[in-house]
Design a protein around this nucleic acid. Structure first.
Ligand SMILES: [Mn+2]
Ligand SMILES: [Mn+2]
Ligand SMILES: [Zn+2]
Ligand SMILES: [Zn+2]
Lengths: 148, 148
DNA sequence: TTGCGGATTAGACTCATTCTAACTGATTAG
DNA sequence: CTAATCAGTTAGAATGAGTCTAATCCGCAA
């Protein structure tokens, strides 16, 4: 169910943490493992329950802390749709999100550099944007999910 | 401060409400007036306080109700940025939002049809989107706000 | 050993939003 | 005219995601 981190994933985690002056801990490894295992944009609660299967003592507070830490050092992105619970995404490539009206599932949508550029170009002079969030809402044909 | 609704605005309000089987009420007029008076994407609380100046007995619950009604009949859009309080926007033209990192102010960004089209085009087959939300976050040079 | 500082933890707290149940007031039916 | 109806309004309670607090825990270094 929850595969272990590859050596490469471990390095990725360690490098990002150390670079921002923080430590690799068992809890952080567990939470990161959960995020990489199933890239379905889980909520904090979902991460919590999944991580507990492998580390039963883990607390919800720590899951919040770990995720905040990861966001802070650029390991994951937060994903919000309206006022629903925040979800987390370890996909670092520029991408948009598509939320299925029926299932609630969130899908990644690749974002070509050319589209990014045309988006930046609509900003009037004086506006300088660091982050652009794009989210779609609609129906997606059921297409069995990659078990990764 | 809070200009009254023009005849045209009143018709717009009435038509949208009646079309979805609802009534024009003094509270709804007051809330709508507030939204049109200052197009700064106010939160519910801001709408509440502004509307109270002209209708002191108005309740917060009613402001929530009115805004939900307006969203339901397409008179205004909800605007969310991360998990901040929901804001409301009466601009019905397709547009994106730019949130100023420093001031928190939200600005409308016109969205050319051509950009919308290129966005739709990045959806893989099987994905059908009704709503596309685009939001920028960064710095905007202070440029005195139009007093409308 | 002991001390330090970051990390973890349980539980209290916040606060935007939603829910509930009583009330109001306009309209309709008898 | 009453009375029934019904959408809308209202105050206040409840909800729940997220944040905060204060007490440990623990690896490391003096
Ligand atoms: Mn789907
Ligand atoms: Mn500004
Ligand atoms: Zn994603
Ligand atoms: Zn707007």
């Amino acid at each position: 169910m929850i595969r272990n981190l590859t050596e490469q994933d471990k390095e990725h985690l360690q490098e990002a943490l150390v670079k921002s002056g923080q430590k690799v801990t068992p809890q952080r490894e567990a939470v990161f493992t959960v995020l990489l295992a199933e890239r379905d944009h889980p909520t904090v609660d979902e991460v919590f329950h999944r991580a507990r299967e492998v580390m039963p003592g883990l607390s919800l507070a720590t899951v919040y802390n770990c995720l905040e830490t990861f966001v802070g050092c650029g390991l994951v992105r937060q994903v919000n749709h309206e006022r629903e619970s925040t979800r987390y995404c370890p996909n670092l490539a520029p991408h948009a999100h598509f939320r299925d009206k029926e299932t609630g599932q969130v899908h990644d949508i690749e974002l070509p550099a050319e589209v990014m550029k045309s988006l930046r170009s609509i900003l009037p002079p004086g506006f300088d944007s660091e982050v652009i969030e794009i989210s779609f809402h609609g129906r997606a044909q059921a297409k069995e999910s990659h078990s990764n």
